[in-house]
Every structure is written in structure tokens, then in C-alpha cells.
Amino acid sequence: MRSYHLSHSGAGLAGLTVRTHDAPVPGPGQALVAVRATSLSHRELLVLEGSYVLPVKPDVVPVSDGAGEVVALGPGVEGPAVGDRVMATLFGVEHLAQRGGSLDGMLTELAVVDADSLVPVPAHLSYEEAATLPCVAVTAWNALTGDAAGVRPGDTVVVQGSGGVSLFALGFAKALGARVIATTGGPGKAVRLRGLGADEVIDYRATPDWAAEVRRLTSGRGADRVVDVAGILHDSVRAVALAGTIACVGFVGRTAEPLDPRALFASGATVRAVAVGSRAQFTAMNEVIAEHGLRPVIDRVFPFEDAPGAYAYYAGGTSFGKVVIQGAGSPAGIG
């Protein structure tokens, strides 16, 4: 079997190599999964450049997100069966153990995974689609539903840009009955966001003060919830309604203005840091995906042999939706 390895966090693409190994054998409580597809998220770029916030072991098999088929079980496994189509949660059963970081990830032909970490693939999804769910989809679901208030029908939700979390948040928010205002950086992406169900789209290049535009579109009230993926809390506070919620998911913008504590206090908003979610949230999300027939947005699929090309393409920042790496020898489009 073949696996990709990253020599160390911060090694960049030059540190990504493929090796051949003997097939692993699952131990007690473990399952052996033939990985049919993996997907990239911003997390993988952070690991590659050495700025990921959690530990990354040397020589790690990278990539947290993957889907595949159970091909063998270790002793004492209850639940998954050989032949099941499954995804692995990003976090393992131990506290803060994460795939593609302190644990080996999914960019491999065969992965040994704790059986308790496996979640069934929704029946209507292909392996390529399912591989997009464990990190950004669960994060988006948590951002919308993981607090006491949650998104309710009639709420207004703001999503930022067209990255994975934002596109999933758009689809989930619409399924939950919310009105969605999306921000983006150009007319082409604005058209695609409307096609995915966004009720309003703000081009922040044409309208730099997008927070004021959110207020205008909500008759001065502001949004009930802002899913902030860019770390622009200063503007998100201006866009959120009194006592609304800001789900702080990331900081891809990296040029954020300082957050004025007086503005935050005046808003009465709750700012909640969101880092993926639990297995229970993953399962609840999958129920909604199945009920509404939701499908992830995939920009491009690369072969296993060109995983470095997938990384380079994703890092270029031009993708709309997820970048997927197909498993070696994997049949396409199973669903």
C-alpha cells in the first residue's frame, strides 16, 4: 500500500512524499478502511506551512478528511461492518487527538481508524462528496446549531466568501429555514452563490462596508448570526443584530482590524469560537443532509498520484467549493 507523508509541519510541498508499506492490521476496537477519497481544507495548508494550532507529529500521514470502505475489523468491534461506507471524524477518541496531526491522516490507500470514530456515509453521496464532510461541514453545522439559540426559521444568517465552511453554512442555513446573506469578492461568484440559494449577495469589492449593507438589507436590525471565517470580528460585530451570535470559525483573512471591546459590549452579541464538532453533531448533520438531499460543492477532483498538484491548486485560492483527491484505484461517483 502507498501513503503520503509530511516530513514535519512547516515542510511545505517539498516535504510531502509518497511511500510504500505493508498493509496494516487493525487492532482491538479498530477498523481498516480502504480510503476512496480525501479532501483539502484550510487546515491542511496550515499544517503544510507550520502554523496549525495543534500538535503535528513528525512524518505524519496528512489530511484529516476522508471517506472509504471498511475492509477488515479488529477484535471487539461493534457497529461498523465489513463493506460499510464510512467517514472518520477529525478528532480521535482521545482528547484533541486529530487526524493528519497527532494521528496519521487519510492520504493513504489503507487507514487504521478507531471504530468508534466512524460515521456512515449518507446513502445518496459519492465517496468524493462524503470526503468533504468531516472538517468543514461539521464546523459549519456546529457554527449554526452548536449553541443554545441555534438557527431558527426566519433568522438571517451571514456567510463570508465561498470557501468550504461558508458554502456548507449556506446550504445548512437554508435547510433550517433561514434567510442567507452571502459576501463575496466578485460578480461571478455572486451568481453562483445565488444559484446555491443565497437570498442576498454583497460584493465586498464593490461595497467595502459590507456590514453597513447587511444592516440596510435587514432594515437596520442586523443579522441574527454571522459565520465569521476570516477573523474580521470588527466588521462582524457591526453586522450582527442586538444579542445576536457570531460564530468565529477561522482567520483566513489574516488582516483583521482590532476588535473594539466597547462595540462588542454595546452589541450584546455572543462570540463563540468553533473548532469542528462532535461525533453526535456529525451524525445529526448527516440526518439533515439525507433528509434534504444536500450535496457538497466540489470544484475539482485530482488523482491520488497528483496529491501535490491538488495542494498547489487549492493553495492558489481560486477554487469554488472543495478540492478532492481520489483514492488510488477508487471507482468514481459511487453513491
Rank of each mutant, 00 (worst) to 15 (best):
S9L: 02
S9T: 15
G10A: 05
A11P: 00
G12D: 04
G12W: 01
L13F: 06
A14L: 08
A14N: 11
G15K: 05
G15A: 06
G15M: 07
T17P: 01
V18A: 12
R19Y: 12
T20P: 02
T20S: 15
T20R: 12
T20I: 10
H21L: 13
D22M: 08
D22W: 04
D22E: 15
A23F: 00
A23K: 14
P24N: 04
P24K: 05
V25A: 14
V25Q: 14
V25D: 14
V25E: 15
P26A: 04
G27V: 08
G29D: 00
Q30N: 07
A31K: 02
A31N: 01
L32H: 04
A34N: 12
A34G: 09
V35G: 10
R36Y: 03
R36W: 00
R36K: 08
A37W: 00
A37K: 00
T38D: 00
T38W: 00
L40S: 06
S41V: 11
S41R: 01
H42D: 06
H42L: 11
R43F: 03
E44D: 15
E44G: 03
L45Y: 02
L45N: 01
L46G: 11
L46W: 13
L48P: 00
E49N: 15
G50M: 01
S51E: 11
S51D: 12
S51P: 05
S51C: 11
S51I: 13
V53H: 13
P55D: 07
P55Q: 02
P55L: 04
V56T: 15
V56P: 14
K57C: 10
P58S: 03
D59A: 12
V60P: 01
V61Y: 00
P62R: 04
P62K: 05
V63Y: 03
V63N: 05
S64K: 11
D65F: 09
G66V: 09
G66T: 10
A67K: 02
A67P: 00
E69Y: 07
A72C: 05
A72N: 04
G74Y: 07
P75V: 12
P75H: 10
P75R: 11
G76D: 12
V77G: 03
V77T: 03
E78D: 13
E78M: 11
G79I: 11
P80C: 11
A81K: 14
V82F: 06
V82S: 10
G83P: 08
V86Y: 07
V86F: 06
A88E: 09
A88D: 11
T89R: 08
T89L: 04
L90A: 15
